[in-house]
Design a binder for these strands. Structure first.
Lengths: 239, 239
DNA sequence: CGAATAGTTGATGTATCTCAAGCAGGGTGG
DNA sequence: CCACCCTGCTTGAGATACATCAACTATTCG
């Protein structure tokens, strides 16, 4: 019995392309021209489709209306590092230069609001929103560098699960009222491993171990229940 | 003979505090009130002084006029991760929330331009400068996540040396005209190790190895000469 | 000159990776 | 409807890159 399967929502029907078809089709073909406002387009994509690839022109900004996206980079020999996991409300596509510095791929079926980069940067409000998002991202990447550079496999997995358990709530700031949480992973072991700088097998072993110790409990197919989030926090060496 | 010693420029004489004195003195005492423009102050600090600590109120922005700074985070048990190495022209102090998410410490004697965060964010030009800097930082942290998550000790050190060899030039974009470079490290082995997610001993061993293979040559006390930067690039698995 | 600090090098240990086999669930088609 | 296959996951055994521990050397500074 797999206790942590990736979700297959398959709720989006707008786009008929398969993943591979989308990769070979001109990008513009995938725009849904439904305007949500001046100069804003919406875009729907299935699970595991590529939004843009490293090196593509970085002329558009994406805001996640629903769904989830991962950003990653590849080394020439195939090693992959998943840099960030993004969810509802997050902005992506803001690279340093003219080209994207990483690839963006959906984790589940997702909807995006797409705006031209120049338009977004034109208004003060847009600038502020971008800045806010960049700062959040920076803070996360700092925390993640600590994880990758200095934490053990066990601490890495615990930190990741804790992060998933707190979810978007962590942004709101207030500590959650309850000590229990339910996690929906929506990621494969490979994706988790590539995010945490580990191998598939190590991730699997650590999660098995954490389950054996009762810190998380399998709860249906793609869900983990965390009876006491504080136990996870203790394992993860967050201060 | 140590071939890679940290620089001790000791060119700044404005501040009389020792490192420890500065740590215990109220932060405001260290401001040099010489105004360089409306609401801009300058600040000089010695080598290895702390500019701010994780948790301090993030109400000021710092721009490096000269010198170098590292940002780092600590785990409760003393493990440290050096997140970024900053130099002339770089901005720092822009954390996500109201408090700094990391500590900033000078690597060498440095001068800063200090502005109130609200003032900097008020102008469009300021916003743009901040955004530009944040984006550069993001790109670097992405690259560094690949290093920490997926590269071997050898690749990490080579990547780091390559980064130091290219120096600020990497921002200009154009490939350097020459294949040779000289690196001034201005960092201790411990700082390098904490940046690369390694131990002091591993860094030392790898550098010794790279020297033995002739890829870098000791050149005075704190300098490394790189006869062919392309050899470093090959070692570092950059694409 | 001698103590203190930073760096190097060697011997040994171990956390994680690698390789390999087996298992579970979900979909497909006979 | 059930057997089969495919994919993703788990588990074990063995290998290894890097950490740890420890001794030594070089450099700086008083």
């Amino acid at each position: 019995m797999t206790y942590l399967d990736r979700t297959v929502p398959e709720s989006s029907v707008e786009i008929a392309f398969t993943r591979h078809a989308a990769e070979f089709a001109p990008r513009a073909d995938r725009w849904d021209e439904t305007a949500t406002g001046p100069r804003a387009k919406t875009l729907r994509m299935r699970e595991h489709e590529i939004v843009f690839e490293e090196g593509d022109a970085a002329d558009r900004l994406y805001e996640i209306a629903d769904g989830a996206v991962m950003l990653y980079k590849m080394l020439p020999d195939g090693r992959r590092q998943v840099l960030e996991i993004l969810g509802q409300g997050d902005l992506f596509g803001l690279s340093g230069g003219d080209a994207h510095d990483c690839t963006a791929e959906t984790l589940s079926a997702s909807g995006f609001r797409v705006v031209d980069r120049r338009d977004a940067e034109a208004s003060v409000a847009g600038q502020q929103k971008i800045s806010l998002c960049l700062r959040d991202r920076l803070t996360f990447l700092h925390e993640h560098a600590v994880l990758l550079g200095r934490k053990s496999a066990c601490e890495r997995v615990a930190t990741f699960l804790l992060w998933m358990a707190l979810g978007r709530a962590r942004r709101a700031g207030g500590a959650p009222a309850t000590n229990t949480a339910v996690i929906r992973l929506a990621m494969t072991r490979q994706e988790i491993a590539d995010h945490l700088g580990l191998t598939i097998e190590t991730v699997s072993r650590v999660i098995s171990d954490i389950r054996r110790r009762g810190i998380v409990v399998a709860d249906g197919q793609d869900r983990l229940r965390v009876p006491d989030v504080r136990l996870l926090a203790r394992m993860s060496s967050v201060h």
